[in-house]
Computed example of a mutant assay.
Amino acid sequence: MIKTLIPVRSHIVSGVLLSRQDGEIKILLMKRVKGNFWCHIAGKVEKAETAVQAIVREIKEETQVQVSELYSADYLEQFYEADQNVIEMIPVFLVYCTEHQQIVLNDEHSEYAWFSLQEAIEKAEFGGQRLLYQYIWDNFVHRKPSELLKIQLF
């Protein structure tokens, strides 16, 4: 009997941005043009890039936010991609943005908004997103993250 393996791939990074908006901490979600769903930032790691370099670049490209405070979220998004028969593992990063952070979208997204945790969970298309947003809230809003997760930028 021939056993078929499911490859595990990790070539994407994702980032969740938090900002105080109107007195409350909120999560940035953007509506993707392709697929028409709300999501946080994600993108592929380019050749010769580290995951940190990739997420800083992706955040700048998608929102025009200059990252100054970056953390490893200590979390991996994971899902099965049926059309490619692959399990995708995505390291997540967290960015604390300035109060009333302004966003300038690129052409990958049609709109954005800052949402409360409950609103973000309601907007999330996928169960993994809902779990991630709750995890971020528990570990980066309700608690001060460990300094060991803070990433020194270049």
Score class of each variant (00 low, 15 high):
residue 1 M to N: 10
residue 3 K to C: 07
residue 4 T to H: 07
residue 5 L to N: 14
residue 5 L to V: 10
residue 8 V to C: 02
residue 9 R to C: 11
residue 9 R to A: 04
residue 12 I to V: 12
residue 12 I to L: 10
residue 14 S to M: 09
residue 18 L to V: 13
residue 22 D to K: 14
residue 25 I to K: 05
residue 25 I to S: 00
residue 33 V to M: 02
residue 36 N to F: 06
residue 38 W to E: 04
residue 39 C to K: 05
residue 41 I to C: 12
residue 42 A to T: 08
residue 42 A to Q: 07
residue 45 V to D: 01
residue 45 V to F: 06
residue 46 E to N: 03
residue 46 E to G: 05
residue 47 K to G: 00
residue 51 A to R: 11
residue 53 Q to K: 09
residue 53 Q to W: 02
residue 55 I to H: 04
residue 56 V to N: 09
residue 56 V to E: 14
residue 58 E to W: 02
residue 59 I to Q: 11
residue 61 E to S: 04
residue 62 E to P: 00
residue 64 Q to D: 15
residue 66 Q to Y: 12
residue 67 V to I: 08
residue 68 S to E: 15
residue 68 S to C: 02
residue 70 L to N: 05
residue 71 Y to T: 00
residue 71 Y to V: 01
residue 72 S to C: 03
residue 73 A to S: 05
residue 74 D to G: 09
residue 74 D to V: 00
residue 77 E to T: 11
residue 78 Q to N: 07
residue 78 Q to Y: 14
residue 79 F to T: 01
residue 84 Q to R: 09
residue 86 V to H: 05
residue 87 I to S: 04
residue 87 I to V: 06
residue 90 I to Q: 04
residue 91 P to A: 02
residue 92 V to K: 13
residue 92 V to F: 15
residue 94 L to E: 12
residue 94 L to V: 12
residue 96 Y to Q: 08
residue 96 Y to P: 00
residue 103 I to S: 10
residue 103 I to P: 12
residue 103 I to M: 06
residue 108 E to Y: 15
residue 108 E to G: 13
residue 108 E to S: 05
residue 112 Y to W: 11
residue 114 W to R: 12
residue 114 W to S: 05
residue 116 S to P: 02
residue 119 E to G: 03
residue 119 E to K: 04
residue 120 A to Y: 00
residue 120 A to E: 01
residue 123 K to Y: 00
residue 124 A to L: 02
residue 124 A to K: 00
residue 126 F to A: 15
residue 128 G to N: 10
residue 129 Q to K: 06
residue 133 Y to M: 05
residue 137 W to T: 03
residue 138 D to R: 08
residue 140 F to P: 09
residue 141 V to W: 07
residue 143 R to L: 05
residue 144 K to H: 03
residue 144 K to V: 13
residue 144 K to F: 12
residue 145 P to I: 06
residue 148 L to P: 01
residue 148 L to I: 09
residue 148 L to Q: 13
residue 151 I to A: 01
residue 154 F to T: 14
